[in-house]
């Protein structure tokens, strides 16, 4: 009659105090393509790898600008991200309307965290199957937050989520000390290199499959795609010596136009 397992819903603890449904939801994040984010003293950058369903189809939307001062990058169920991003847009506009000020990134992050938590404590709901990186600049400077389906939110200097993102995080950890004083351009390059490290051997970053989002103290959050990022892709992967990992990808760089 009773099933001898604890993973049927998100309102059951296992004897070890774990909630398997939530842990499974975290797995959904790992199915999504990789996204990375970095902050410096002056800028916050998101970079994302987009997938396409087939040759002739369009690519996914991985970066969503929310307000003029920040945006998000997602990994996992895109439709869950849409629900969350709509909520974030509403909250951000509400802050501007009632107080005339841009919402704090810490504030909006904990609000979606609280929302996600509710889904893990009530029967009949499921945890969100998406992870987010939230990056931008507010009254307290540039910030990067990571959101997980469990409702855990953390502020990072740099972060990466999604498929094979461990490789990106390794790159980020290795170059961690540099980020704080990076210029806008250097920061973008770091983000692209970290992203590239998470690619499988036969993949390349191209103008079609890469998205960038940049926010700064003096600039609004803006998404860059297509030909707008061609320059950065070119300059980033030409001076391969700079990045620790870049040498590995040197052979692949030649096949860019295949």
């Amino acid at each position: 009659m009773f099933r001898n397992n604890y993973d049927n819903d998100s309102v059951t603890f296992s004897p070890q105090g774990r909630i398997f449904q939530v842990e499974y939801a975290q797995e959904a994040v790992k199915q999504g393509s990789v996204v990375v984010g970095i902050v410096s003293k002056t800028h916050a950058v998101l970079a994302a790898l987009k997938r396409n369903a087939e040759e002739l189809s369009s690519y996914q939307r991985k970066i969503i600008p929310i307000d003029t001062h920040y945006g998000i990058a997602l990994a996992g169920l895109a439709s869950d991200a849409r629900v969350l991003s709509n909520f974030m847009k509403q909250q951000s506009l509400a802050s501007r309307l009632t107080y005339g000020r841009p919402i704090l990134l810490s504030d909006i992050t904990s609000r979606i965290g609280d929302r996600a938590q509710t889904n893990t404590q009530h029967y009949g709901k499921r945890p969100y199957g998406v992870g987010l990186l939230i990056a931008g600049v507010d009254a307290r400077g540039p910030h990067l937050f990571e959101f997980q389906p469990s409702g855990v939110t953390v502020e990072c200097v740099a972060g990466g989520i999604g498929a094979r993102s461990q490789m990106a995080r390794t790159y980020l950890e290795r170059n961690l000390d540099e980020f704080e004083n990076c210029s806008r351009e250097e920061l973008i390059k770091h983000a692209l290199r970290a992203l590239k490290d998470s690619l499988s051997q036969d993949k390349e970053l191209t103008v079609d499959n890469t998205s960038l989002g940049v926010g700064g103290m003096e600039e609004n959050f803006k998404m860059y795609e297509g030909q707008d990022i061609a320059g950065w892709l070119e300059t980033t992967f030409e001076n391969k010596q700079e990045g620790g990992q870049a040498a590995e990808g040197s052979g692949e760089g030649m096949e860019l136009d295949s």
Binding site: L97, T98, Y99, G100, R101, L104, R140
Partner: peptide
């Protein structure tokens, strides 16, 4: 960093609402 986030202007916007 401790400077209050709510400026007089923000407060006025709120009260006017």
């Amino acid at each position: 960093v401790d400077a209050p986030l709510m400026s007089a202007k923000n407060l006025h916007t709120y009260l006017a609402k």
